[in-house]
Design a protein around this nucleic acid. Structure first.
Lengths: 143, 143
DNA sequence: CTAATATTGATAACTATTATCAATATAACA
DNA sequence: TGTTATATTGATAATAGTTATCAATATTAG
C-alpha cells in the first residue's frame, strides 16, 4: 500500500489516456496521499498551496476528479454538505456511521451485510458495482 | 394510508408550529401526494402550476421542505443530480438499486440487512436513527 | 528544436438551493 | 365583523459548490 504504487496507478492512467505529467499533478497526488480521511477539495487546495503557491483551485478540482476516475479516490456526499474524497487505494471498502450532531464519521464494515446486498441485487436482476451505506444517528460522545 | 391522513399530519404540524393554512399549501400537498415516486422540486412545481398558475418556485420549495420536516416526504440525493423527494407516508422504508446507465431506481427491502445494520451501529456505540443504502450498478434492461 | 496539443490559472458561468423583502393573506381577538 | 399582528407569498437576489472558458504556458513526440 505504498505511495509509490498509488503514484504508479495515477500516472499509468494519465499515460494511457494520452495525458501529460505535470508538477501540479505530482503535488496534488502527493498532498492527497498524505492527507487524512475524507478531505474536501478546499482542504486539499489549502494543503497543496503550502508547497505550490501558484496552483489554482480548478487544477486541484480537475485532478481530484482524475484520481477518482482511476480508482484512487472515492467521492462521498453527506447530506447537503460539500463533497468529500477519501483514499481508496490501500484502504478496504467500508460504510459510514455519521453522527447527526457533530458530523463525525465512523468507518465500519460487515461482511454479512455485504453478502446480503449482493443477493438482494441479484434477486432483482441487477448487477451491483458499488454501493453506499450510511447510517445516521448519534455517536457516543453526543448523547 | 389515505390522503386524508397525510393531509392531517401536514396541517396538524402546521398548526402546532403556529403556522397558517394557505391555498398554496393545500395545492402543493395535493400535487405531492398525487405524484409518483421520486419527484424533483421542478416536477412538483410544474405539476402545481397546472391548477395554480400564480404559484412561485420558492413556495413549492419551502413547503416541500416542510413536508419533509413533518415526515411526509424524504429527501434523497443521487450522485450530483438534483434532490428528489419521495412519499414516506403510507410507504414502507426501502433502499434503492440505482442503475448507473438509465438512472432508474428499484426499491428494495431486506429485513436481515436492516437488523444487521442495527447490530453494527450498536457494536460501535452508535444510536442509529435512519439510514440510506444505495446500490449502484446495471439494471436488467441496460445490459 | 519544433509543432501539436494538453494543462494551467483566473475567472466567468452554471446549477441547485436558500435568503430577502415588500405586498398580501391569515388567524386571533376585541 | 373589524382590527391587528404576523406568517406567507412570489419575484428575485444571493449563495455555495462545481464546472466551463480561454489565452498563456508547458509537455511530449518526432
Amino acid at each position: 500500500m505504498g505511495k509509490t504504487e498509488a503514484r504508479d496507478i495515477f500516472f499509468n492512467y494519465i499515460k494511457e489516456k494520452g495525458l501529460r505529467y505535470t508538477k501540479q499533478r505530482e503535488a496534488i497526488l502527493g498532498a492527497f496521499l498524505a492527507s487524512g480521511k475524507h478531505i474536501t477539495i478546499d482542504d486539499l487546495y489549502t494543503a497543496v498551496k503550502k508547497t505550490n503557491q501558484d496552483i489554482g483551485y480548478a487544477t486541484v478540482h480537475r485532478n481530484l476528479k482524475l484520481m477518482t476516475e482511476c480508482g484512487l479516490a472515492d467521492e462521498i456526499k453527506i447530506g447537503s454538505h460539500k463533497a468529500r474524497f477519501e483514499q481508496k487505494y490501500g484502504h478496504e471498502h467500508h460504510d459510514h456511521l455519521i453522527c447527526m450532531k457533530c458530523g463525525r464519521f465512523i468507518e465500519v464494515h460487515d461482511e454479512k451485510i455485504e453478502k446480503l446486498q449482493g443477493k438482494l441485487a441479484e434477486a432483482n436482476d441487477f448487477v451491483p458495482m458499488r454501493h453506499k451505506l450510511e447510517i445516521y444517528g448519534m455517536c457516543k460522545k453526543c448523547r
